[in-house]
Each structure stands twice: as C-alpha cells, then as structure tokens.
C-alpha cells in the first residue's frame, strides 16, 4: 500500500499495533454484514458484503451505523 498524503506516516499509523475489537460476520438476506461489537447487545457496522448494489445506498447499512443485536437461543 502506498499512501499519497501530506500527513506524516507516523500520525496516520499511530496505534495500528494495538489490539483490535471483536468482529462478527452476520448473515442477512443476500449478504453479510461485518460488525464490530461495542457491547453485548450493540455493534457497529464495519463493512457490508452484498450482491445487491442497492444495499450500499441504504442509510441503515452504512459503515459506522450502530445496530442492536438480539441474542436468541436456537
């Protein structure tokens, strides 16, 4: 990866060695949501994988959106 930016690299990469949070992949119809757990019941969307391009325009599925998780017994 080559970064092309006037910002010093040490500022950009500061903290990149730190431990990352917990990530989950949650299936939903037609695609997968990658989320980062904030607490046991809340998560933040990190990434969306979908074959339906309109999903990428959906405001509720943008990266950074917080979602509520509900745990269910199978």
């Amino acid at each position: 990866m080559v970064l092309y930016t006037p910002l010093p690299l040490e500022i950009i990469l500061k903290g990149s060695e730190e431990k990352k949070g917990h990530y989950l992949q949650i299936p939903y119809q037609g695609g997968t949501l990658e989320v980062e757990l904030i607490s046991a019941s809340r998560a933040r969307i990190v990434r969306l994988y979908s074959n339906n391009i309109n999903d990428y325009l959906h405001p509720g599925l943008q990266p950074g959106t917080e979602i509520q998780l509900q745990w269910r017994r199978n």
Binding site: L24, I26, P27, Y28, Q29, G30, G31, L33, V35, A43, N52, N54, D55, L57, H58, P59, G60, L61, Q62, T65, E66, I67, Q68, L69, Q70, W71, R72, R73, N74
Partner: peptide
C-alpha cells in the same frame, strides 16, 4: 426505489438478530 432494509436474518442461523436503530444516518 430501494429494497426494504434487509435487517432480519433468516431464522435458524446464528444467534444474533439486529434491528435498525433510530436515526442511523
């Protein structure tokens, strides 16, 4: 013009289920 929020996962798969929170945008 956009499909319904596909936020309900099909039943029977992993234990999480998510809901759209208010004012996500």
């Amino acid at each position: 013009h956009i499909q319904d929020p596909p936020l309900k996962e099909p039943s029977g798969t992993p234990p999480e289920e998510k809901q759209d929170s208010s004012g996500p945008s």
